[in-house]
């Protein structure tokens, strides 16, 4: 979700500095507070590697809605990282 976006080298640098374990702990904690659909769609996309089209079928929502959830989740996670690691 993060590394594929070339605009945010900051996240890659943070990943190098913190290590994946620390980043995953933060992501787990933040996701824990997210609404259930956001958590679920993030999990399907990132952890279980389903495509947007597959998630759309699984969830019974449009591809655009899935993409919207992922964009919002990414945005909120980035915001949380910027607050946590200024």
């Amino acid at each position: 979700v993060f590394i594929e976006d070339p605009e945010d080298e900051w996240i890659e640098k943070l990943n190098e500095e913190l290590g994946g374990d620390q980043m995953h702990k933060h992501i787990d904690m933040v996701l824990h507070r997210f609404p259930a659909p956001m958590k679920s769609i993030y999990d399907l996309a990132v952890n279980q590697r389903f495509s947007v089209q597959e998630i759309s079928k699984i969830k019974g929502i449009s591809v655009e809605e899935v993409e919207s959830y992922l964009v919002r989740t990414r945005k909120h996670l980035l915001t949380s990282f910027k607050g946590r690691y200024p």
């Binding site: 787990d28 904690m29 997210f34 915001t79 949380s80 607050g83 946590r84 690691y85």
Partner: peptide, 23 residues
């Protein structure tokens, strides 16, 4: 939570992490 996510300070994030770890 999402409405306030931009407002949380570094200290608040650390506290949230500690609370989450305890849970």
């Amino acid at each position: 939570f999402l409405d306030d996510i931009e407002k949380f300070s570094n200290t608040e994030w650390i506290q949230m992490q500690e609370d989450y770890s305890v849970d």
